[in-house]
């Protein structure tokens, strides 16, 4: 078992390196290049005048291609890390923040790859991959004893529903990360009109499609959490801070979905709501750090 745990950790380390490199490539691709043009003119008086102007141009396509390749590597290594730990623990690794974050890194790379393939655009990687890479840095910062596999505490001894509940949460958060990236680029494109970014309509559609996947998943998280709470604690809903934080996130995305039907709200305002939505996701994700209550386990 120790060998598998170590192997899982080495794969995680490789994931971290791959996603860090992918982030650099995607950022270089999305930011583009700055071309400085100089012109020198000779005047009739015999003097010369030099003027310069900066021109922004699309990033080198090869940066984007390298970003994609490295993301695939990252996904492969993250899959290996999760797989080996799953075999070692005989359950999906979702019992503490180390395991939860590890599986989240896998989910976020998978969801990003799906959207990259679906829309044929790579610029979103400049935001999504740094989030995934940041998550690996967070994992590095966790206490080393979390890497050990320990038996589940009684409250978590419900493997099928725990797997379903936590997996749904991880994939919901991952798709919300994609929608966040699309919203950021939407606002950037709208403000500065950078022409090599995807069109506003595409960015709006990516964000909506991502929320369209994530919102039902988050609903499933709340439902499965309620069913689990009923079995474990005898009550569906306890107004526990972690529960209500997830409800808050769900409501923010509910606001987003409704605003899209309003004239004048689709676009910029919807994108701003998505920024709030992802802030709510982060708030819920790290809630264990500052919430008490029934969810105050997870090893933080």
């Amino acid at each position: 078992m120790d060998t598998l745990v170590k192997l899982s950790f080495y794969f995680f380390a490789a994931t971290s390196v791959a996603l860090g490199a992918a982030s650099v490539c995607y950022i270089a691709y999305a930011i583009g290049r700055v071309r400085v043009r100089r012109a020198t003119l000779a005047t009739s008086a015999g003097t010369t005048v030099t003027s310069s102007s900066a021109d922004f141009a699309p990033g080198n396509v090869s940066f984007g291609q390298w970003g994609s390749l490295l993301t695939w590597f990252g996904a492969f290594f993250a899959f290996g890390a999760v797989l080996f730990r799953t075999i070692a623990a005989e359950r999906l690794p979702t019992a503490n923040m180390y395991e939860f974050s590890l599986t989240f890194v896998l989910a976020i790379t998978i969801m990003y790859i799906i959207f990259e393939r679906m829309y044929g655009i790579r610029q979103l990687g400049a935001i999504v991959m740094p989030i995934a890479f940041g998550m690996t840095l967070y994992i590095w910062s966790l206490p080393a004893d979390m890497r050990e596999i320990t038996p589940l505490i009684p409250a978590l001894q419900a493997r099928p529903i725990m797997t379903a509940h936590v997996s749904a949460a991880i994939f919901a958060y991952a798709t919300f990360a994609v929608s966040f990236a699309a919203a950021v680029f939407y606002l950037v494109k709208k403000r500065w009109g950078i022409r090599w970014l995807p069109s506003l309509e595409v960015l709006d559609d990516v964000a909506f499609r991502a929320v369209g996947i994530g919102f039902p998943l988050l609903s499933l998280v709340l439902i499965l959490g309620s069913v689990w709470a009923h079995d474990a604690w005898g009550v569906y809903w306890s107004w526990d801070p972690k529960e209500t934080a997830a409800l808050f996130t769900w409501l923010v995305y509910g606001v987003y979905l409704h605003t899209r039907t309003l004239r004048g709200w689709r676009g910029t305002r919807s994108a701003v709501i998505l920024l709030f939505g992802f802030a709510a996701v982060i708030f819920t994700y790290y809630g264990n750090y500052f919430f008490g209550g029934l969810h105050a386990y997870g090893g933080v």
Binding site: R117, G120, W196
Partner: peptide
């Protein structure tokens, strides 16, 4: 096609990600 579709075509053309 939409006026701004050139944006997506550009990226679809030089990115072979489909």
């Amino acid at each position: 096609r939409p006026d701004d579709e050139g944006n997506w075509d550009h990226h679809e053309a030089d990115d072979d990600t489909r």
